[in-house]
Design a protein around this nucleic acid. Structure first.
Lengths: 223, 223
DNA sequence: GCACAGATGTGATTTGCATCACCGCCGCTT
DNA sequence: AAGCGGCGGTGATGCAAATCACATCTGTGC
């Protein structure tokens, strides 16, 4: 058994005996880039805890359009809503960077939660995290008047959580992926990004983005 | 104390003693149309259980744009994510039709959940319901190529849950509200709706909408 | 039955962005 | 070093939908 459960990111603030009985129902595995943990519409088998690496959660339409819902990093979970509700997974989870993942089977997990109120409350908190991410996405998609506004909002969101010092951040996403996250075309991302660079709002060097003028960016985001 | 808790919609499938101790921490009230249960950004005081009436949950931008996130009806809850996470409410809840509401204070609620694993699991399920609604909204907003597609998706969604017989449904929303739910302008809703009527896909009489050609509607929704 | 507010319907105009169609660049592999 | 594939940058074009600006229509209270 490995990582988050023990290393303290996730359920570690629970009583030791509870952690121990959780350990008993988990199993670990490593997945290569491109591996698919589960597919939208598939019956929910259980929940995946990401130990390291990165996983993208996306949803797609019949017309082939793809929308990235969120990018999951070490210490977070995927597949939780489906596991709790018993309905099929609502999205597809694909490994972006080689990932070590702990899996917990649905039955055992629910059983475990019923027995440990503390853990169930913790899980409820994880669910709210996921919900709030979705809600944020709704706001970005629905309340923006323009593509620049969406992108500005996105960068500000991303910056809380990927900070490397005050205003430097690793974005580690292709422009295509950014486009799929904010619901615009890839070309538009390019254009708006160069526009921001021209305006000295931000600088971009490889995968590192630096916010040069946070106030201006917030202005652009309409907040 | 009243309604859902007792009448069986919500926590009633829990052991009787658990329901009893839940009763002890609730308080009921009635709100008129237009009343605001809480406002976006306000610290979360607790959770509201809607006994009857309808409440709309919305989020707005600085620019005055408003987005309706969901419409809550009897037996559902509002303010749950904020109550669980401890972060401020992420949206505003406003009464659309006079509503009888039961309120549960945050502290007592969390305390209660920790003691009753069963109830906590139930709450986790309610959270997934809310999450799935948000996820559906993301799909509608992000994966549609056109306004007609959005509206068609919306009507199909709405029809599961407001059915009055196979293909009749109460929509009980103004076109303005529909517009705010799917992220298009009010005029566009009017136009697309009349277009659908022309094509004999649906009929509209007062607040009752009848789906005349479900297959065509699904086609339009791109599924 | 009148008046008024809110909801709905419609046209004309403008515009932001998707889309298409490229090119150059960098990092791989062979 | 040559060739290839994924990514990023850019121009030209078309169109769907926002916006503006009204004209009904509906119901509700007086």
């Amino acid at each position: 058994m490995t990582c988050p459960l023990r290393e303290g990111r996730l359920f570690c603030d629970l009583p030791p005996d509870v952690v121990k009985s959780l350990d008993a129902i988990t199993s670990a595995a490593t997945y290569p880039k491109g591996a698919v943990l589960f597919v939208e519409g598939q019956p929910a088998r259980g929940v995946f805890v990401i130990c390291n690496g990165r996983v993208k959660v996306s949803s797609s339409s019949a017309g082939g359009k793809v929308m990235i819902v969120r990018v999951v990093e070490a210490g977070e979970v995927v597949g939780l809503p489906g596991t709790i509700s018993g309905r099929p997974y609502g999205a597809t989870a694909e490994v972006m960077e080689p990932a070590q993942v702990t899996f917990i089977k649905r039955d055992a997990f629910l059983q475990f939660l019923r027995q440990h109120g503390e853990a169930a409350v913790k899980v409820a908190q994880l669910l709210t995290d996921i919900y709030e991410a979705a809600h944020q996405e709704v706001r970005t998609l629905g309340l923006s008047r323009s593509a620049s506004e969406k992108l500005a909002k996105f960068i500000l969101d991303w910056s809380t959580g990927h900070a490397q010092g005050q205003d430097r951040l690793q974005l580690a996403l292709t422009q295509e992926e950014i486009a799929e996250m904010i619901g615009v075309s890839r070309e538009t991302v390019t254009r708006v990004l160069t526009e921001f660079k021209k305006k000295k709002v931000l600088a971009l060097k490889g995968a590192t983005l630096t916010i040069l003028d946070r106030t201006a960016l917030e202005q652009l985001a309409g907040n």
